[in-house]
C-alpha cells in the first residue's frame, strides 16, 4: 500500500494560533499536515519556531485560532479531551510536567483509569507499558527518586498506557543515556509497525535521518518543508538556508563527494557501506592501510 492510501488519522487544515490574541506573537500560521497510519513524521525547527504550539493542537490542549484540526474527520473543538486522549498521546519534553503519583505503576495507570477502563484492563495496560520500556524493576518506586532518564521513560510509559493511535514525542531522547534512548526508539518503531503513527519533535538531525519517513520543517510558524526524509535531510542549501545542519554522516559524505562518495547517505550504516565500496575500489588488492 502506498503511503497516500493509508488511512488518514489526523488532518490539520490551515491552522493558525497566537498566544493571548497578541497579533505580534503569531505562533503558527496556516499550517497544513496529514498524519496517516504507519507513518513516522519528524517535526524540525528552532526553539520558538512553533513546534510545541503545533503539537499541542493535535491533542486539543490548544484549539486553533483559525483553521481546523480533524481527527478521523471530527473537529478537535467539538471533541472532549478524554476522547482525544484515545487518539493522540503527548509525551512532554519535561517529564516532571506529567509525573505526580506515589509509585511508577500508579503514575502509569493514571491515564487508563481516567479513561474509565476496568481494573483488569488497567492492569494489562500498565503491565504492557512497563514491559515495553523495561521498567519492571522500579514499578514500586517513587518517580521523583529516579534519575531524569528513567523519569522520562516513566512519563512515556504513562502515555503508551493510553494506547493512542498517534504518539507525539517532544525531544524524547534528549539527555537520555544510550539504554533509555534505545528503548524509546524501539517503542517508536513498534508504534508504527502496529499501525499507529508517530510525530517526533527533535533537534537531533542524526536521529531524524535514521528514523523518520517524512520530515516537516517549521520556521517562524510556517511550514517550509514537508517531504520524504532523504530529499529534505540531504539538501544542504535548503537546510542551511533555514539555519539547520545536515545530519553528521550526510555532511561527511558530502565533503567526500569530490572523491566519488555518494552524497545522500542518511545513517552511519549507509555511510560505512558507501565508503567501504569506494575504499575497496581504490584498494583492489585489499592491502592494509591506515588513515
Amino acid at each position: 500500500m502506498t503511503p497516500e492510501h493509508r488511512e488518514l488519522i489526523i488532518q490539520v487544515r490551515s491552522v493558525s494560533y497566537r498566544y493571548g490574541g497578541d497579533v505580534d506573537r503569531q505562533a503558527i500560521s496556516e499550517v497544513d499536515l496529514e498524519i496517516r497510519r504507519g507513518e513516522l513524521i519528524a517535526l524540525l525547527g528552532h526553539n520558538g519556531s512553533g513546534k510545541s504550539t503545533f503539537a499541542r493542537h493535535l491533542n486539543g490542549l490548544l484549539k486553533p485560532y483559525a483553521g481546523q484540526v480533524l481527527i478521523h474527520g471530527l473537529d478537535t473543538r467539538e471533541l472532549p479531551v478524554h476522547r482525544l486522549a484515545r487518539h493522540v498521546g503527548y509525551a512532554f519534553q519535561n517529564p516532571d510536567d506529567q509525573l505526580f503519583a506515589a509509585t511508577v505503576a500508579e503514575d502509569i495507570g493514571f491515564g487508563p483509569r481516567n479513561l474509565g477502563h476496568d481494573a483488569a484492563e488497567i492492569e494489562r495496560r500498565v503491565g504492557m507499558s512497563i514491559e515495553r520500556l523495561g521498567l519492571s524493576d522500579i514499578a514500586g518506586h517513587h518517580p521523583f527518586l529516579l534519575s531524569r532518564s528513567t523519569r522520562r521513560l516513566v512519563a512515556l510509559a504513562g502515555v503508551l498506557a493510553l494506547a493512542p493511535e498517534v504518539l507525539v514525542l517532544d525531544e524524547p531522547t534528549v539527555d537520555l543515556d544510550a539504554w533509555a534512548a534505545d528503548r524509546v526508539l524501539t517503542v517508536l518503531r513498534q508504534q508504527v509497525a502496529d499501525g499507529g503513527a508517530v510525530l517526533l519533535i527533535s533537534h537531533d538531525m542524526g536521529l531524524v535521518a535514521a528514523t523518520a519517513d517524512r520530515v516537516v520543517i517549521l520556521r517562524g510558524g510556517h511550514v517550509v518543508a514537508n517531504g520524504p526524509t532523504r530529499a529534505v535531510m540531504t539538501d544542504l542549501s535548503f537546510l542551511t538556508g533555514n539555519s539547520l545542519a545536515l545530519p553528521p554522516v550526510t555532511e561527511l559524505a558530502q565533503a567526500l563527494a569530490p572523491h566519488g562518495m555518494r552524497p545522500d547517505v542518511l545513517d552511519p550504516q549507509e555511510f560505512c557501506d558507501a565508503y567501504a565500496a569506494l575504499w575497496h575500489a581504490r584498494h583492489p588488492r585489499r592491502v592494509m592501510s591506515g588513515p
Binding site: 561527511l252 565533503a255 567526500l256 572523491h259 566519488g260 583492489p284 592501510s289 591506515g290
Partner: peptide
C-alpha cells in the same frame, strides 16, 4: 569531529597502496 574525519577519510582514499 568533522574536519579530522574529512582529512583522514580523504587521505585513506588517496593513499592507495597501489
Amino acid at each position: 569531529d568533522h574536519p579530522t574525519a574529512v582529512q583522514s577519510l580523504t587521505d585513506a582514499l588517496r593513499k592507495s597502496p597501489l
